[in-house]
Design a protein around this nucleic acid. Structure first.
Lengths: 348, 348
DNA sequence: TGCTCGCATGTGCACGGTCACAATTGTGAG
DNA sequence: CTCACAATTGTGACCGTGCACATGCGAGCA
């Protein structure tokens, strides 16, 4: 049969309808599996679809239903392990529910860039937004633009939404700090993340809360930029200027850089200094010594974020969710305060 | 004025037209900046748009023009640094050109999952595809489905497209291997990536070519899975079974795991064994010792991929492209063959 | 037998843009 | 002042799908 002449447009429901000898509406009903369709008719239509290699046109569907089935993901530094992993998980979960994911990466996060990225996502008529690794500025813009779609944010402090995830950050930081205190450390330095990141701020908060609970003193944390390079330089600086026996770094990368600086200075870890990181990136267990850190279930966080967003969007779909708990993973980079160090402490 | 009654639908060009006192077509002309429009009219329309907070509906545009302005990115293991970074670069470049990016991550890469992910992207009527970190199977599926849109692939071997990028992988591997040979190493082991990844295969090819050019012998490479954990176990196994003075790992993660194994065995790097990685991930410079590796410009690769795709898609837009060259970064993990080792070699 | 009811299917239009093709207005030459 | 022609603007159809609202048809019942 030469029923399918060149016709370069992709086949539409009408083409399918013609081939199956029904009206386009009946075909549409099959697509949305409407209950009242005779089995034989349905079979005939399905076969016609198969024959024509029919693929529903999402744009047309979006236009007519007013729903795009697309969600947007706004992410800063998506090349970092944690965010990247969560994005992948979100994408996966979304695809499973038939949603498309449109991403926008923020390089520099000046308000103009943020607005630009958001506009881009809104242009696509996203039905919801996931904000990853949010900085306060992002929420300012979000509020200023008066976004019409629901959004959730990962790893925030609960200021704007998801309390559950927020608790994790603070709790995780407390666990890390507690671990060091339990080992006898009294002079603990916090190598913090950039404070305009809610996530970094929450971790610092957890650190300070735990220090406070233990009635310890601490110098103001060092504000870093998440990078291993910064960790390295901060380490050099610390060695020059402060006395301390342990460091809690706000993420693994900085912890690894710090480790490097300590090696350079011929100091032993954990002999002279103990180090704890945060995130448990895959290489954390292979540094020398292996890094004690706080494990985060990034996949779970991503899935939870999507599930929460789905609920927020008021779709009927309810995806089961479970709260995400951080987990302290003790490896070789932490140990008791060295005896040799105890007298030193008396100086203060 | 209460011209804007509730009317919950978003404003359309017709609403704008009414407010500006022109026809919808004139508004459309403004959107596509058609040349012949009186300046005063244009200004009036722009103001009306502003007033109504008008935002063009992409779905409608896609429907009527038959173009979605969307490209798809198919990626395996997008949580890895390199791919993640390239994806971000692609996304950025695409956004700049007004394109949307839809991503699909491959967890396990069985043909069914690949097909599923591709179908998902095609459902969105993507105009082009970027395949990242391709495995041969992906291309099989791609060919079987007889995809109608152009695609480019990152870091392939040139079998399917982009020769320029392919050369990089082989060249980079040769540079790494050459470096070890120049240092006097004769027994070099290659810790390869999974061979169904074209990228891994290319690196192995580069290694073998260089070994061959130097008239050296080598045992068959060890086939890994890219992970640091694998590098660690491979290291333990190597120490038990083989004699060697240097290892070229197909990526940094495996190299770091290997480093860990050597530390565990109390071997010195580079005193006893030299190690080279591939990728130059951010922590590579902070391992102990800092890792000698082959730097790849992932951002550049991403941009190049998008530019190439744009050309492939036959859009008028020409984005300037520059070939990407790998760069050997010599750090502390490589050094001359230890004298103590030379006699040992005679045994073979 | 005639009537109601529910299932299965069909008809026509709306969604918000773009396109092809008028229709109108403005401009300069003869 | 008229006409040809360009510049500007308007009209109506169409893209592929879903919705509201018929319509046809057989079963059940009085």
């Amino acid at each position: 049969m030469s029923a399918d002449l060149p016709k370069d447009r992709a086949p539409s429901i009408r083409d399918v309808a013609r081939l199956a000898g029904v009206s386009h509406q009946t075909v549409s009903r099959v697509l949305n599996d409407h209950p009242s369709i005779r089995e034989t008719t349905k079979a005939r239509i399905l076969q016609a679809m198969e024959e024509l290699q029919y693929r529903p046109n999402q744009a047309a569907r979006a236009l007519s239903k007013g729903r795009s089935r697309t969600i947007g993901v706004l992410t800063a530094s998506s090349a970092q392990y944690g965010p990247a992993r969560s994005v992948a998980a979100i994408e996966d979960a979304a695809r499973r529910q038939g949603y498309f994911v449109d991403t926008a990466n923020l390089g520099v996060a000046d308000p103009a860039a943020i607005e630009d990225a958001l506009e881009h996502l809104l242009d696509q008529a996203v039905e919801g937004l996931v904000i990853i690794a949010p900085q306060e500025r992002v929420f300012d813009v979000l509020e200023r633009l008066d976004i019409a779609v629901p959004y959730v944010s990962l790893q925030s402090t609960g200021k704007h939404d998801l309390r559950a995830l927020a608790a994790d950050q603070i709790l995780g930081a407390r666990m890390a700090t507690r671990h060091l205190i339990d080992l006898g450390h009294r002079e603990i330095v916090h190598l913090a993340g950039p404070q305009d990141w809610n996530e970094a701020e929450a971790r610092m908060r957890g650190f300070l809360l735990e220090i406070d609970d233990a009635d310890l003193m601490t110098n103001p944390p060092i504000l870093g930029d998440w990078s291993a390079d910064f960790g390295y330089f901060a380490g050099q600086e610390l060695l020059r200027s402060r006395d301390f026996s342990a460091v809690f770094a706000a993420n693994d990368e900085m912890a690894l850089g710090l480790l490097h600086a300590l090696h350079d200075a011929r100091l032993s870890v954990p002999g002279d200094v103990s180090i704890v990181g945060f995130d448990d990136v895959p290489v954390a267990s292979h540094s020398w010594p292996p890094l004690t850190t706080v494990h985060q279930d990034f996949d779970g966080i991503g899935r939870l974020a999507f599930a929460t967003l789905l609920r927020e969007m008021g779709t009927g779909v309810e995806v089961p969710t479970a709260p995400i708990a951080p987990r302290l993973v003790v490896r070789g980079s932490t140990g008791p305060v060295p005896v040799s160090r105890l007298p030193l402490l008396k100086r203060y």
